[in-house]
């Protein structure tokens, strides 16, 4: 067994929270640059250029890309040969979030659902754990903003509607979201599994680098077709009309129950923030 002290986890989560919120990924920057060339609307081009300018200011001045610095979503791939020492892993992650959001001047955005009282330190984190082979620990911090998350949905389709039914649901979701999730968006689609798995598949699809395609040719085609259709809706950058409504569509799929066809759509704004470290 390889030992990893949970203090290391705290330090890594802290740094990832800050870095994810101030440094937009090169894949997103590249997608925005390409989008400027592809956009027909002058206002749309201007918006896209301003988003690139915004990312530069955030990076250089260590200011968040967006004031909504998100719910701290932490994905962990824990090698089964790792032994975590020094205390509770969950507490260590939450401490990392607490330190990162305080020391990084990030907005605290978690509250009680009814009283709306803010927890004050952006905890608790949402923690997703996968146990994998090996002796390393992969930590991904993906802060998720509320505006785009609010536009996300899960549905349980009737199997008879098939792939066309899935497409119709995704397109309608993007159409109904309009300008709300700060387009250009990234659309994560999870097909199959159970009710909750479809949402998680959709969220994990958002972590894939922009410009990549699903390795399954059928799903790669589905991604391309959905993307073309979405960018024909006319919503455009910030919903002000234009061609580039989404920068990418990413699909994940797994088996489902013989009675079901679950579909999750997780909408992500252009501030597609996620950073990772492997310990």
């Amino acid at each position: 067994m390889r030992e990893i002290h949970v203090k290391e986890v705290t330090a890594v989560v802290r740094d990832l929270c800050i870095r994810a919120n101030t440094h937009l990924g090169e894949d997103v920057l590249e997608a925005l640059r390409k989008a400027i060339d592809q956009e027909d609307s002058p206002t749309g081009k201007d918006v896209l250029a301003k988003l690139l300018e915004n990312a530069r200011i955030a990076r250089e001045d260590s200011i968040p890309i967006c004031q909504d610095t998100g719910f701290a979503v932490v994905f962990m791939e824990l090698g089964q040969e790792v032994s975590l020492t020094g205390g509770s892993l969950k507490d260590a992650i939450n401490e990392g979030v607490r330190q990162g959001y305080q020391e990084g001047y990030l907005r605290k955005s978690t509250c009680h659902p009814f009283t709306r009282t803010n927890t004050g330190d952006n905890t608790p984190a949402i923690i997703h754990l996968d146990v994998v082979t090996g002796d390393s620990l992969r930590l991904i911090v993906a802060p998720k903003g509320g505006g785009s998350e609010n536009m996300s949905r899960v549905t349980m389709l009737t199997p008879a509607v098939g792939i066309q039914g899935v497409k119709d649901f995704v397109i309608q979701r993007v159409r109904d979201s309009g300008a709300n999730p700060c387009p250009p968006t990234i659309v994560g689609v999870g097909i199959g599994g159970t009710f909750e798995t479809s949402a998680l598949l959709a969220k994990k699809a958002l972590l894939r680098p922009l410009g990549s395609r699903n390795g399954d040719p059928e799903l790669a085609t589905l991604e391309r077709e959905l993307h073309e259709e979405i960018n024909g809706l006319g919503i455009g950058p910030q919903g002000l009309g234009g061609r580039i409504t989404s920068l990418a569509v990413h699909v994940n799929m797994m088996e489902c129950h013989i009675a079901s066809l679950p579909v999750g759509v997780n909408i992500q704004c252009h501030a597609a923030r996620h950073k990772e470290v492997v310990l």
Partner: peptide, 25 residues
């Protein structure tokens, strides 16, 4: 422009809380 929080902040020269400080952000 949604998502351009760093850019928009450059046009803001001063900020003071006038009510409901307990609401934080």
């Amino acid at each position: 422009i949604g998502g351009a929080g760093a850019l928009m902040a450059q046009a803001i020269k001063k900020a003071e809380v006038v009510a409901y400080e307990d609401l934080g952000p």
